Computed example of a mutant assay.
Amino acid sequence: MKITAAEVNKLRQTTGAGMMDCKKALVEAEGDFDKAIEILRKKGQKVAAKRADRESSEGAAIAKVNSSHNKGAIISLNCETDFVAKNDDFIKLANDFANMALNCNSKEELLAADYKGITVADKLTEQTGVIGEKIEIGAFKTLEAPFVGSYIHAGNKIAVLTGLSSNGDQAEEVAKDVAMQAAAMNPVALDENGVDQEIINKEIEIAKDQLRQEGKPENMLDNIAQGKIKRYFKDNTLVNQAFIKDNQKTVAQHVQTLGNDVKVVGFERVALG
């Protein structure tokens, strides 16, 4: 049967599939639009099954904050190649999913959510068929605080959310500064209380081994190692790090420009690659 260009274009706009794939699906469906969509989805399932064991380390990490600035979400939409990750339609889809994540509490809830008449999970399968690469939601993180800010590093490779204990005139700028800090310096925790005890024990043992090699006496090792741990906290915990825009003060001190009692209360960081 004759399939018009307008019908093919309509299916392409709906599914994002290529023109030839859309035409073939409409011919197979004998012009039935809904059946053609189903044919394309089944094709996506077959491609997804074939690509299931592929590594999807490329993609886009997107952070979003709600209009009240008290909740943020980060998702990564993962794919196999940087070529796909830079595609405008792929980035738009990642942004759509990140906006949806603001209303979800888990990755599973996001995957089950409705996206233009189908679930997000089904949309991922569909797009796997369209693009020919494994596509999946990788990271899913949310953050709630009195004020939440965000930052996405160039190329959508790193996305960060930061939470402050108070709102204010310059809260958005300061929260973004802190998010940029976390993006650049990759802290292991918010402060020393958030560092896993196993990491602390490992760092202490590393410090002691170094001190022994330097010939320090055994009875001095504990005290010197504790000093080195304090330095580790300063270098690797967000609020204690030297602020990248002014290394004469810490991140905590920079945040206090909003008020002496204002603190960073949380952060989330997602990095690809």
Rank of each mutant, 00 (worst) to 15 (best):
K245R: 14
N223P: 01
F267K: 05
F233W: 11
D209M: 08
E218H: 11
F243V: 07
H254F: 04
L164K: 01
K245W: 03
D209E: 15
N167S: 13
S150Q: 12
I135N: 00
T257H: 00
A189K: 11
E173N: 07
K208L: 04
A145T: 08
M220L: 14
K216Q: 14
K245C: 09
V148M: 02
A225F: 01
L161F: 04
M185N: 13
E214H: 14
E136W: 01
G129M: 07
V265I: 14
K245P: 10
G163C: 04
P217T: 12
Y232I: 00
K202W: 05
P187R: 13
L190Y: 05
F147C: 03
D222P: 08
V148C: 05
H153D: 06
N201Q: 13
S166A: 15
D261H: 14
A183G: 07
S150G: 07
N201F: 06
G227N: 04
S165R: 11
D222C: 00
K249Y: 03
A179I: 03
K141N: 12
P187Q: 14
R231H: 02
L221K: 10
V251I: 14
P217Q: 12
L143F: 05
F267H: 03
Y151R: 06
A183F: 09
A242S: 15
K234E: 15
V178D: 05
A145M: 13
V264M: 11
E205V: 07
V174H: 01
F140C: 04
F243N: 10
L238V: 11
V239S: 14
T142H: 09
A145R: 10
V265L: 04
D177W: 01
N156D: 14
Y151N: 08
G266E: 11
S166G: 08
L238T: 09
Q210I: 12
N201H: 07
I224A: 01
I199E: 15
S166Q: 15
L238A: 07
G138I: 03
V130P: 10
I200F: 07
G259E: 10
K202V: 00
V195M: 05
Q181N: 15
M185H: 09
G194H: 02
A159H: 06
M220Q: 08
G227R: 09
R231Y: 03
M180N: 03
T142Y: 00
K230C: 01
T257L: 06
E172G: 14
P146M: 13
A225Y: 03
V262P: 12
I206D: 03
N193Y: 08
T237V: 11
E136H: 08
L190V: 06
Q248S: 15
F233Q: 04
I137T: 07
L238H: 09
K202H: 10
G132M: 11
M185W: 00
E133C: 01
V130N: 12
V251R: 06
E203W: 03
E173M: 08
G155S: 05
V262M: 13
L164D: 08
I131T: 03
V130R: 02
I206Q: 06
K134R: 15
F147D: 00
K234N: 14
G149Q: 05
A159P: 06
Q181C: 11
Y232T: 05
S150I: 01
K141R: 05
I206F: 02
G266T: 08
F243Q: 11
G194Y: 08
D196R: 09
I152S: 01
S165P: 10
I158L: 02
N193V: 05
P146W: 14
A159Y: 02
S165V: 15
I199H: 12
N186M: 15
I158K: 08
I224E: 06
Q248D: 08
